[in-house]
Design a protein around this nucleic acid. Sequence first.
DNA 1: ACGCTCGCATCAGGTGGGAAACGG
DNA 2: CCGTTTCCCACCTGATGCGAGCGT
Length: 599
Amino acid sequence: MLGGGEGESSTFSSPKEAADERRKSPAADVDGPARSRYPEHGAAAGRYYVPPTASKESPETANPCSFIPYAPGGAVYSPPGAGKYPSSLHLGSVGFAPSAAGGRSHFGSAYQLAQSPGCIYPPYGGPGSALGGMTLPAAGPGMRAQVYLCNRPLWLKFHRHQTEMIITKQGRRMFPFLSFNMAGLSLTAHYNVFVEVVLADPNHWRFQGGKWVTCGKADNSSQGNKMYVHPESPNTGAHWMRQEISFSKLKLTNNKGTSHNTSQMIVMQSLHKYQPRLHIVEVTEDGVEDINSDVKTQSFTFPETQFIAVTAYQNTDITQLKIDHNPFAKGFRDNYDSMYTAPENDRFTPSPTDSPRAHQIVPGARYTMQPLFQDQFVNNLPQNRFYNSERTVPQTNSLLSPHTEDGASQRWFVTSMQQGGNGTSTSNKLDLTPYEGEYSSSLLPYGIKSLSMQTSHALSYYPDSPFNTVSAGWGSRAAYQRKVTPSLPWSPRPSPTPGFPEDLDKVKPQIEEEVSDGGGVISSWTDAQPSALSLDKADSYSMACKRRRLSLNVPSTEDSPADIKCEDLASAASNSSPYGKEPPSSKAMAAYYSFYTNP
DNA sequence: ACGCTCGCATCAGGTGGGAAACGG
DNA sequence: CCGTTTCCCACCTGATGCGAGCGT
């Protein structure tokens, strides 16, 4: 029913067993042989990520969509001994690109790079603007991979307030968690996929006066695991590209001495800023690095996933976002019940009948939350139904599902970096421009066509969700129609809204504006979407926040416009193809899948 | 009888809040 | 003293098992 997922999972009697089995793989075992190739944890202390535009007071930083330091010539923190690796990791890959003459990295080197002290954020050499010109490379060896941050809109929401991640002794999951879609891998080649978390800057941080300020130097002596190998590693390119690759089980801890579950925990220090990085390493079939081959490692960095590790939340805006978006924190939502019992007129938002975005506007658990919730937790699907691990659902749904009303469905895409290639880019900003046309069709072969929308049961895990037909971008939502109650007043799709292209036309320029504009992004969006946002998501959200604690630094209401923008876009995209009976137009896709690229 | 779906109960585990403990 | 960390709590989700109901 679910294509390859079930078949593969059948190998193991349980997810745990499957994971254990995979862990036997040298590559998958972070403590095993493969791992031994990585200079261990202590070395990570010296690795920093320093955005070229460094100053946190700069507009670049202030703008969630422009904080990405892609300037090729950007400042890079380069501790002594950092010079060994190509400074090409940031938003790019090391290797794989056939043309990456100057930047290719040996397979083994990539690992070292991942673990070695020194700079991991080399100048971004991309052109900065791949707008519209981007196409997916044909599958095959030697091509560059593209990686999409599936839940990027959610990450952006958090990033605007400086994301915080709780760390505990026993380990705390990340929220949002990392979730990617991949493309451009060789279908038959085997890859290890893992996440590494490194210091983002050399500072120690503290929350003072309602904002984060640096406070001395970071403790470079941090020890412990910095890597989390995806439990499905190693696996084929086809496997990785089939559906979302999520790291929902990844845990963060401050317990350096922990000896159990080290493979699932990343050790970090409180009040330090970290930057997760995704690595894709081509390996042999048995998961061993092929040291005889060149250019086998690609690394991707999404600046919006940067976060400060804390043992207790500092910024109440972050707390509120967590509560609003993390289903496990539903118990802390104070309007959970009222959202259901309140009369239509008393709600914070009209029913979706009035607007396809209505469910995103209400702060209540089952309104605002659900789509994001699905996004993040689709990964918790019974693993044995898929790939025994943190998989979600087939990319089929995530890419073309019409049930993608939430902006989280958008995929934010990073192509592997072309070393020394088109180094003409002077862009210091994240290129969020929706890519045009060809991408959708190029990507389709990886499952979109092969899997039926109805085959996915991802939403079966949210049977009570009125939005379970809404793909939140975790991409993977498929219609779970059986349990959807058509009579629900907020039924996400009472009548698919036609005219998506028109909406899209409005949305796309706004996104571009957001990307290119520094701090004015939010306001511009707000101004541009007077009616689209008429449901006052912003107001709803702010109201919700007002009923709770409010942090001193940023008015909660500022969140809304940006949030809406992302969600609105996805919503528009989803409307273009009700229930997936027809794929979105290339135009829709262009706006729907914005991406980072550095060809 | 058998297979399937569904609803319910149970349990494990994740969540932030808040108080207490810790430590510089 | 104050900032940080730890622990416990109530609440929630998700996985699982069981039995009832239904159709073949």
